[in-house]
Design a protein around this nucleic acid. Sequence first.
DNA 1: GCCGTACTACGATGGCTATCGTACAAGGCA
DNA 2: TGCCTTGTACGATAGCCATCGTAGTACGGC
Lengths: 132, 132
Amino acid sequence: MNSPKARRKGAAVTTPAVSSRDLPHPETAQIRLESVLHALSDPMRLRIVRELAADGDELSCSYFDLPVTKSTTTHHFRVLRESGVIRQVYRGTAKMNGLRRDDLDGLFPGLLDALLDAADRQAAQVRDLGDG
Amino acid sequence: MNSPKARRKGAAVTTPAVSSRDLPHPETAQIRLESVLHALSDPMRLRIVRELAADGDELSCSYFDLPVTKSTTTHHFRVLRESGVIRQVYRGTAKMNGLRRDDLDGLFPGLLDALLDAADRQAAQVRDLGDG
DNA sequence: GCCGTACTACGATGGCTATCGTACAAGGCA
DNA sequence: TGCCTTGTACGATAGCCATCGTAGTACGGC
């Protein structure tokens, strides 16, 4: 609810908008552990982060095939961005998403890897139970 | 809302109550990563877990001096217990709380240490900012 | 048996949030 | 220019949740 629509309403944009469509990200020092944990405590968002980590670099929003509507998907990506977990940037019509791995590793060394490993282990366990 | 009051209402207790006051804990295999993260995403609960980890073993609920009422404290301890982060047991009138470190380390190796380290780093950073 | 301490259960409340549908904007392409 | 794809904003809704106050239970000591 910040830059894109605010401009149309004639409101003054405080942050210097380099591009016409840039998104607010928290600075590295402003990332809060509680917010990161809250962001990752949702199954849908944890799934997004796992796919981002698995695929490596940047993925568009449309890459993900989540069992929710596009509105909800947008919401989840915003939560991840505002908590500092991912970085979002427009590339044409697509919106590319990338893990803020360097920032997180600098703030909380080992945390992201431990979280991803934990998620992998839980997924493997659930898979085994499903197989019987 | 399970064992303590249910007995008075004459309902059948499914779980074999060894003591008159025992508390429902999730089994180790039932602990879900999302629930753990959600439990730790609350500042009050993260603080409780940090104190438990710092002090080592078991601490009573009254040991903690939290800026909330006792009702709310009870609520937070229950969330931590039901998510599998802590184990609670009555000892006389006191209720002792202990981290389920072995269970969590077995499920998610390195996760708890990474989380505690991250919380320590953030606390140190906030402290530095406060000192100016 | 009675009281104090420790903690809980219950109900209420206000705020957050995950979800949806609809309408709309921005960029690429024919 | 007009259309399609991609993604957003907005409003609504239902459920969860952190918090409180009050009343009550359980245990230990007097």
